[in-house]
Design a protein around this nucleic acid. Structure first.
Lengths: 149, 149
DNA sequence: ACATAGTCTTAGACTGAGTCTCAATGCAAG
DNA sequence: CTTGCATTGAGACTCAGTCTAAGACTATGT
């Protein structure tokens, strides 16, 4: 359908980055990438187990480690006990999260580009002053989602 | 010394808020609050065990739960496996974190007040649009600390 | 086609942060 | 000093996440 071409491109990028670290793009890995693409929000191991019941947990964990090592996936730490995963930002677009402190739901949001630039600038100055080498930032909003409020 | 009066005030606030939820301000709880005050950065359970070797871990966890319930303590989730804790923002000042992705070190930083206001404004708009009730935000910078770069 | 060597997958054992339980202790007030 | 209740402590327990070792798969050479 209409998103298919973009998704094909994505898979080509994924395959290329995995090859760079001598990893193959196997069906299990592809299943996880597909899930991350279609989910549209950070996904927990529980979500993966639910959507891909035939994929063992140990494999899912290892795939995520490999995809992370290839720079394809990012860990998202909410305030609950579960680690979630999403596609790396250069495969999607820079965005932030609304985290529901009650149910753990995570909603993706984007900020205006000019605002992001100002944030990045301010962060760069701060980091420099502390002798810190900044890679990225995360701006998360904590509160209650529409269902929990 | 010079900080003592402020610290006394703080302890009075802590005691008051604990009383509100029918909790006493006992020595174990006070030891943790003192540690959080003097540390000046978010503290992990491991840090607590090291600084307060006679305080059992189970008590430390419970105290942190109680202090959290009283709105005195905030959980800080770094990208490593450890949860850290810091004093609630209304007992200190609003600040952010530089998180070292290599060693897990957490450094506190503050942003200019006018910038913070703009961030809050932008966040409020975003949250409203998603039907989300924002309580607070966290802006963390990920990268390498001076020692790890 | 087959063999070979290397990679990938899997089931399950293992680890350890965090939780729970319950008996022991401490504390306030009559 | 006793009664009732909150707090504490030691350790068992849970379960997300990691590790391991053996089997399955894949690519390449002959």
């Amino acid at each position: 359908m209409s998103v298919q071409p973009m998704t094909d491109d994505l898979h080509r990028v994924v395959e290329h980055r995995l090859r760079r670290i001598d990893q193959r793009y196997t069906s299990g890995r592809r299943a996880i990438v597909d899930l991350l693409v279609t989910a549209g929000h950070p996904v927990s191991i529980g979500d993966i187990a639910e959507s891909l019941p035939d994929l063992p947990r140990s494999s899912a964990y290892r795939h995520l480690v490999d995809l992370h090592a290839a720079g394809l996936v990012r860990r998202v730490t909410a305030n609950d006990e579960f680690t979630r995963f999403e596609l790396a930002e250069d495969l999607t677009e820079h965005h932030h999260h609304l985290l529901c402190v009650n149910c753990g739901k995570v909603i993706d949001v984007t900020l205006p580009a000019d605002f992001e630039q100002r944030v990045s600038g301010a962060i760069g100055q701060l980091a420099d002053a502390a002798g810190f080498q900044a890679h990225s930032h995360r701006l998360d909003v904590l509160g209650l989602c529409a269902a929990c409020r």
